[in-house]
Design a protein around this nucleic acid. Structure first.
Length: 450
RNA sequence: GACCCCAUCGUCUAGCCUGGUCCAGGACAAGAGCUUUUCAAGCUCUCGACACGGGUUCAAAUCCCGUUGGGGUCACCA
C-alpha cells in the first residue's frame, strides 16, 4: 500500500509551493489507492503557532485535499529520543556539550574515522578520504543523484534542548509511519543523502523519493513582493479552490492532449508522479485568472450566488436576511461569463446596488460631454409608455428612437450605458435597463437632462 | 566558495526515455480583426522558442561532453 505524506511546519501560512506539494502527494495517494498522511512538523516551539496549524488545515480543506491520518511531531519527542539513544548505544552517534548551551546534543557520525580520531584525521587527510562513500538517491523524477559522504558533516540528531532536528525527526517519522514515497520540494534534495545515512544506521528501509521542482515568482523566488503566497489570500481574492488546484497541477505536470482545464477526478486517473517535469516553473497570475474564469463559467449559478452574497453583504450592497435572491441570481447571470474572480462582481455590478453610482470620470468625459437632453427625454417617455417591460421590448423601443432621430445605435447606446452604470463596459444595455427597472433608469437619465 | 538540480515561444507546456512523421504543437499574455452595443466573454488571425559550442549519427529539440545561465543546499530552522 502506498503511503505518502505532506509535512508542513506551522511557522507560517500554507503557501503556493506547499499547496502544490500537498496536491501532488494527495493526488498520488488517490491515484494509487494509497493513504495521504498529514504531519505537522512543530518541533520548533518558539516559531510554531496554533494559528498557523489552523490556517494550514483550513487551506487544505478549502482545496479539498483530505487526509487519512494526522500526526504532530511535538507529541512524538519520546520516540525521537529513543531512536537517538539507540544510535548512541551502537556508537553511531556521540554527545557534545557546547559552552553556551545547558544540555547535551546527540550527534550522528557521518564520517566514522574522523569522528573517532579527530586529531588523527586532521593530520592524515587521506585517511578520512578513505572513509567516504557514495550515497545514491534514486529519484522518481530525476533518476539517479549521487553524493559523496565526505561533503556531509556530522549531523545533530537531538539538540541541546532535547528537541529533534528536522532531518532526524523526518526520518524517524517517515520510517515509523511506513511512508513509501517521499514527495517533496527540490530544496530537500541535499537533505536526502543525510537522511539516507540515518535510515541505514537505524536499520530502516529507505523509501522512494520524488523531488518536485520549485515554483518561482516572475522575478526570481516566489515572494510576497511578486504576488500573494498564502493560499488563504487566493481565497480572499476570489479564486475558486478547484481553479487554483487545476492551475497548480499545470505547473510541472500536463494531462496531455493539449488539455488545460481538467477535472480533479480525471487528473487522479491520469496522474503519476514519475511524469512530473524537472524544471522550475514561474507562477503566472494571468493564467490562474483565466482558469478561474473557465471554472466560474461552468459553476452552477446557485453555488456562485452562495459565494457572492457574502461579498455583497460585506460591501453593504444588500442586507443580510433581507434581499431578493432571485434578483441577485439574475444579475450574477449577466456577469458570469466575464468574471475572472468572484471579487470582480461587486466592483463590476455595483450600479445595481448603489443609489449613487460611481462615475468613471474618463467615461463621463468621453460620452456625456455632449448634451443628450432631447434623446434621453424621448427614451424615458417611450419607456414609461411601454405596456410590456421586457428586454426585447426595450430593445425594439430603443431602436425605433434611434431610427427616428437618424442616429447610429452606438451614438446613443454608450452615453446611456455610462449614465446608468458609470462605466463603459458591462453586460448588454437592454439587460441592464431591464434589471435596473424603469424608476432607476429614469432617475439616472434625468440627471443629464438640462 | 563547495556540493547538487535544471535548461523548448515573455509565461505554462507537448515532443526528449524508444533520434527521422518537428523549418517544433497547444494554452496564457501581447498585437490585429470580427461580434455592426461596450468588453472584461466568444470567434478568427498574427507575433513568438529547441541557451551556446563541440561531438556521435546518413539524420539530433531528442544521445554524449563542455561552456554559459538560472535555481537549491551547506544551522543545535524546517
Amino acid at each position: 500500500m502506498i503511503r505518502v505524506r505532506f509535512a508542513p511546519s506551522p511557522t507560517g501560512n500554507l503557501h503556493i509551493g506547499g499547496a502544490r506539494t500537498a496536491l501532488f502527494n494527495w493526488l498520488y495517494a488517490r491515484a494509487k489507492n494509497g493513504k495521504f498522511i498529514l504531519r505537522i512538523e512543530d518541533t520548533d516551539s518558539a516559531r510554531s503557532k496554533q494559528e498557523f496549524v489552523d490556517e494550514i488545515l483550513n487551506s487544505l480543506k478549502w482545496l479539498g485535499f483530505d487526509y487519512d491520518e494526522i500526526y504532530y511531531q511535538s507529541q512524538r519527542f519520546d520516540l525521537y529520543k529513543e531512536y537517538a539513544q539507540k544510535l548512541l548505544d551502537e556508537g553511531k552517534a556521540y554527545t557534545e556539550k557546547l559552552p553556551d548551551k545547558t544540555g547535551e546534543a546527540i550527534i550522528f557520525r557521518v564520517n566514522n574515522q574522523a569522528a573517532v580520531h579527530p586529531e588523527q584525521a586532521a593530520s592524515h587527510p587521506e585517511q578520512s578520504e578513505g572513509s567516504s562513500q557514495k550515497i545514491k538517491i534514486n529519484d522518481l523524477i530525476r533518476r539517479e543523484i549521487e553524493f559523496d559522504s565526505n561533503v556531509i558533516k556530522d549531523q545533530v540528531l537531538i539538540k541541546s534542548d532535547g528537541t529533534p532536528t528536522y532531518n532526524f525527526a523526518c526520518v524517524v517519522d517517515d520510517a515509523t509511519m511506513n511512508i513509501t514515497h517521499v514527495i517533496r520540494g527540490e530544496d530537500h534534495i541535499s537533505n536526502t543523502p543525510k537522511q539516507i545515512l540515518i535510515y541505514q544506521a537505524l536499520g530502516f528501509s529507505v523509501p522512494e523519493f520524488a523531488h518536485l521542482p520549485l515554483i518561482m515568482g516572475t522575478e526570481g523566488r516566489l515572494s510576497k513582493r511578486t504576488g500573494a503566497t498564502a493560499i488563504s489570500d487566493y481565497s480572499k481574492m476570489g479564486y475558486l479552490p478547484e481553479a487554483l488546484a487545476n492551475y497548480l497541477l499545470l505547473l510541472s505536470w500536463s494531462p496531455g492532449e493539449n488539455r488545460e482545464v481538467i477535472d480533479i477526478n480525471e487528473a487522479i486517473r491520469l496522474f503519476d508522479v514519475k511524469d512530473v517535469n524537472k524544471t522550475a516553473a514561474s507562477f503566472d497570475l494571468d493564467k490562474l485568472s483565466w482558469i478561474n474564469n473557465q471554472y466560474l463559467k461552468k459553476e452552477p449559478l446557485e453555488k456562485l450566488v452562495d459565494l457572492i452574497v457574502p461579498l455583497l453583504i460585506e460591501n453593504n450592497y444588500i442586507q443580510k436576511d433581507n434581499f431578493d435572491r432571485d434578483y441577485i441570481v439574475s444579475i450574477i447571470k449577466l456577469f458570469q461569463a466575464r468574471l475572472s474572480t468572484i471579487n470582480d462582481f461587486p466592483d463590476w455590478a455595483d450600479f445595481f446596488f448603489l443609489k449613487d453610482i460611481k462615475m468613471d470620470e474618463k467615461a463621463k468625459e468621453k460620452f456625456l460631454s455632449r448634451d443628450f437632453s432631447k434623446e434621453f427625454k424621448l427614451f424615458i417617455e417611450r419607456l414609461e409608455a411601454l405596456e410590456k417591460f421586457d428586454i426585447e421590448t426595450i430593445e425594439t423601443s430603443f431602436r425605433e428612437i434611434v431610427k427616428e432621430l437618424s442616429l447610429e445605435v452606438k451614438i446613443l447606446i454608450h452615453p446611456i450605458r455610462v449614465a446608468l452604470t458609470g462605466k463603459t463596459v458591462g453586460p448588454g444595455l437592454f439587460e441592464v435597463i431591464y434589471y435596473l427597472g424603469k424608476e432607476r433608469v429614469r432617475e439616472r437619465l434625468e440627471k443629464w437632462i438640462k
